[in-house]
Amino acid sequence: MAKQRDDLTPRERMEFDALPRELDPPPGLEDRVISALNRRNLLDRPVAGRRPSFSGAAGLALAACLASLIVGIGVGRTTVESELPRASFILFLHEGPEFEPFTETNFSDRFSDYNRWVARTRESGHFITGEQLDQTGRVVVPGGAEPSVEDRVPSVADGDMLGMFFIRAQDYDEAMTVAMTLPHLAYGGRVVVRRVDPI
């Protein structure tokens, strides 16, 4: 695209050039747009038994997801509407002492394993969403008259948590069945399952 901006002074040109053309959209907008499209029946709903393809466009989506990672686990945010009301559970992914760390060489393969799990779990209607954690944290420590808050990421002693998945399941039994299929376990990680308390 030609830039015909000769009528600008060098300083003005510099100031225009310094403005970012792209801005990060607000978190949650993507899912709101998807919901709006679904309400208007403009997207095909996920169909049980149909495997999502991870080639072509989906591969690019995955690549975009990968590119957004700094460290740890990240997954594409996807919401699947359940036919039946179910409880929500969170699968916390901890490192644990036996965990094989992410490395530059295993990162892509490892990440693909997690994403395939997301795809399978989404397909079965269990998957709600997933998030990675950044490098900041607050640790609430009980004691005294009231708990204190420490501005730090959890230490090994706290049990490092790498990320979490939100899933739907009828009860703990079903949630545990899903959790037991997480590839994180095969890499020596630990998974903590907690039921989300509906407010």
Partner: peptide, 25 residues
Amino acid sequence: SFRARRDELAFRALYRRHTPYLFGL
């Protein structure tokens, strides 16, 4: 790809590619 399948994954790929530009504009 999106025209052929009209699925969420294909849409998300388009969305993520162009939305930062659209949001800036």
